[in-house]
Design a binder for these strands. Structure first.
Lengths: 365, 365
DNA sequence: GTGAAAGCGCTAACAT
DNA sequence: ATGTTAGCGCTTTCAC
C-alpha cells in the first residue's frame, strides 16, 4: 500500500503556537452589528430574521439591507440557547449502508420545504448508538431520528422527554417517542413462501449476531427486526419439518462472504440462503458467484431492496420496505411533534417481495 | 405504490397547542446544578470536565460523583459560545455515494482517539454545497471538511479565516485552507493506457455536466477532477487520431443508464466506455448487461474503486484513489490546524488502476 | 411598532 | 487550589 500514502507538499510538525485555532481575522458580524448598521435595536433585528410579529415594512427592508451588507448569519449555538436550533439530528449506525441512505434521502426530500437543517451523527468506531444519540441531544437539535434496535427503551424515553424522538425499526410501543417499522413478519413470510414454492427445503438463514450480553430490558429483544425475521424463518422450517440452520455474522457484511464459503463447502449445502438484509446478501452472492454457482444451485434472497439489488448483474430478490418512505415519514412525525403533537404514534410501512434472478427453482431439490 | 403508504395507528391532525415542542419534564441538569450538588463553584466543575489545570484529587472525585448522580452532560451550544464545540463538520454532496462513504469511514477511524465528534451535513434537495458549508460554520464546528469542486475559492478563504477548512478534490492552491486531491491526471492516464493497450480505439467518455453558468472565478474550472479526467481522455484520443466522444450526465448516475442505452444503439457504438466515476460506471454496466453485451463487446472502466466494484458479479475495472486514506488525512490536517498550524498544506493521494473483468480486449476492434 | 433588560449554560480572566 | 465575575450572541418578556 505504498501508493496510498499521502504526499505532503508542505509537511512540518505542528507549530508550537498555543491551541487557539485560526487567526481571528475580521470577526463575523453579530446581531448587534446589524442593529447598529440599521440604526435599530437588537430585538428588532431578531424579529426580522425570525419573521416575528410587529415589524414595519420600512424597518424590515432596512434591516435586511444591513444583514446583506454585513453578510450577517445568526449563530446556531446562540439561538439554541434561547430558542430552537432549527436542526434535526439523524443517528445512522452505518453510513455505508444503502438502506439507511434511502432513509436519509426520503428525509432530505421533506426537509426541503422547511426551515430545518439535517445533521447526521455517524457511529464512531466501536461507538454505541446511545453515544451518538446523546451527542445529538447535547447539540440541542430540535428533533432526533434514530435507527437503534438495541437501546434501552427507558433510556430513550428519558431522551424523548426533552427532544422529540422518532425510532426507526423498533416494534416496541412507547408513549413518549414515535416509531416507524417495516412489517418484518410479513416480509419474512413472503421470503419463505417464495423459496418454499420454488421447491427449496434446505434453506439457511444468515442473520446478525444477537445482542450480547442479553439486554437488561428483558423481553424486548424479540422485537428487533432481525430477530423477527429469524423467528419467522424458524417457524416455516418447523412447519416444513426441516431442521433450521442459522448463521450469525457481523452486521457490516464483512463476515457474510467467509461464512457462505464455508457453508458451500459443507456436505449438505443448502439450496437457498435467506439473508437478514441486503448487505449480508451481497456478501453471500459474492461467495456463490466465486464458487461458480448460480441461482439454481443456491438461491439468495435479501431484505431492504437497496438500489444495487435491481442492477442486472446483481438482480437480487429482496424485500422492499421503502426506506424512502420511512425517511419522509420520520421527518413528518418530527415536524408534527414540533407543531405540538404530544401523543405517540406508531407508523408501519408495508413490506413487499421483489422477485429477481437470484432466486430460482433448485436444480436438485 | 399503495403498499408503501404508511399506516398510522394513531393518526390525527397536529394538536392546536402552540409551537413549544416537547413537555418540559425534569429539565436536564446544568453545570450550576452540579456545582451545587458537589458544593463547589461552577468554574471548578468546568475545570474538571475540561481536564484543566488546578483541581485537587478530592474535588475531582467529588465533582465526578455529582456529575454521575445528576446525569449531567454539557450543552454543546453553550460551550461553543465561549470555547470549542469539539465537533468537526463534513459537507457531503451525496450521502449515497460510496466513494464519499469511504472518506467518512477513514475520518471516523482517526476521530476515535480524539475528543471530537463528527457531524455530516448532507446536501438538501437542490441545495448548493456552499449552503451546507455555511450551515456547518453557523453551527460553530471547530473544523470543516468539504467535497465541493464548484465553490468560489475566495469565498472558501473567507470561511477558512474563522474555521479550519480542508477541501477534498480541489487542485487549486490556497494559503488559507488545506487541500487533499487524488492524482486525477495519473489515474485517467492509467485508464486510457489500459484501454488502448487492450486494443480499444472507439472509446467514449461519460462525465458529469460542467458547471453552468461558467464559474465567475474564471480559470479555476479546469481544476475540477472530472474536468481533468476528461482532458486526459481527450489528449489520448487526439494522440490516437480518433475523434473524442464525450457524454455529459447528472452526477447521481440517474442518466448514465439511459445515455449508455442510446449510445449502444448508435451506428458506430464504442468498444469501450470510460466513466468519470464508479456511480456512473455502475449505471453504464447495467445498460451494457441489459443489452446482453459483455466486456469484449463494450468494456467499462470507472473511477474511485468503490467497494461494490470488486464484487465478482460486477467486477468493475476502476481507479483506486483510496477514499479511506483521504478521510484519515482530512481529519489529521484539521487536528494539526487546531493544534496551531497556520501554513496551508496540499496533500496528494496516489491513484492506481485496478484491472477487473469489466475491461477486456475488443472482440471486433 | 419599538427598544431596554434579563438571562440561556458555559468558559476564561481574574481575584483570593 | 478554589471561587467570583464578566461576558459569548441570541431570544424574549415587558415597558414605552
Amino acid at each position: 500500500m505504498t501508493s496510498a500514502e499521502p504526499r505532503r507538499d508542505d509537511a512540518r510538525s505542528p507549530a508550537p503556537t498555543p491551541p487557539p485555532s485560526a487567526d481571528p481575522g475580521p470577526r463575523p458580524s453579530t446581531i448587534q452589528d446589524v442593529a447598529r448598521e440599521a440604526g435599530v435595536s437588537r430585538a428588532a433585528v431578531s424579529k426580522v430574521i425570525r419573521n416575528a410579529y410587529g415589524v414595519s415594512d420600512r424597518m424590515r427592508t432596512q434591516v435586511e439591507a444591513a444583514i446583506e451588507r454585513l453578510q450577517y448569519r445568526p449563530r446556531v449555538a446562540a439561538r439554541a440557547m434561547r430558542g430552537a436550533s432549527f436542526t434535526l439530528g439523524f443517528e445512522i449506525p452505518q453510513v455505508g449502508n444503502d438502506f439507511l441512505t434511502m432513509i436519509v434521502d426520503g428525509a432530505t426530500e421533506v426537509l426541503a420545504g422547511t426551515p430545518y437543517q439535517m445533521i447526521i451523527a455517524p457511529l464512531g468506531r466501536d461507538q454505541k448508538s446511545d453515544m451518538a444519540i446523546n451527542s445529538l441531544a447535547d447539540r440541542q437539535v430540535d428533533g432526533i431520528v434514530a435507527i437503534s434496535p438495541r437501546v434501552d427503551p427507558a433510556w430513550l424515553e428519558r431522551i424523548a422527554e426533552h427532544t422529540p424522538l422518532v425510532m426507526i425499526g423498533r416494534h416496541d410501543r412507547s408513549d413518549r417517542y414515535d416509531t416507524i417499522t417495516g412489517d418484518d413478519r410479513s416480509g419474512a413470510e413472503q421470503v419463505m413462501s417464495h423459496l418454499i414454492e420454488l421447491g427449496h427445503r434446505r434453506i439457511t438463514h444468515l442473520t446478525i449476531h444477537p445482542s450480547r450480553p442479553e439486554p437488561p430490558w428483558a423481553g424486548q429483544a424479540g422485537d428487533e427486526p432481525h430477530v423477527i425475521r429469524n423467528a419467522v424463518y424458524r417457524e416455516h422450517m418447523q412447519a416444513l419439518g426441516v431442521e433450521p440452520s442459522v448463521i450469525h455474522t457481523l452486521f457490516d457484511g464483512s463476515e457474510a462472504h467467509a461464512a457462505t464459503r464455508a457453508l458451500l463447502d459443507s456436505p449438505d449445502r443448502p439450496t437457498a440462503i435467506f439473508a437478514g438484509n441486503d448487505t449480508l446478501a451481497i456478501g453471500v452472492l459474492s461467495a456463490v458467484a466465486e464458487a461458480g454457482l448460480d441461482a439454481s444451485d443456491v438461491s439468495v434472497v435479501g431484505y431492504d431492496d437497496v438500489p444495487i439489488a435491481r442492477h442486472p448483474l446483481v438482480s437480487l430478490t429482496s424485500v422492499d420496505q421503502s426506506g424512502i418512505v420511512m425517511g419522509r415519514e420520520a421527518v413528518r412525525l418530527l415536524l408534527e411533534r414540533l407543531a405540538g403533537r404530544t401523543e405517540a404514534v406508531q407508523s408501519q410501512i408495508a413490506a413487499e417481495l421483489r422477485e429477481r434472478r437470484s432466486s430460482a427453482a433448485p436444480r436438485r431439490p
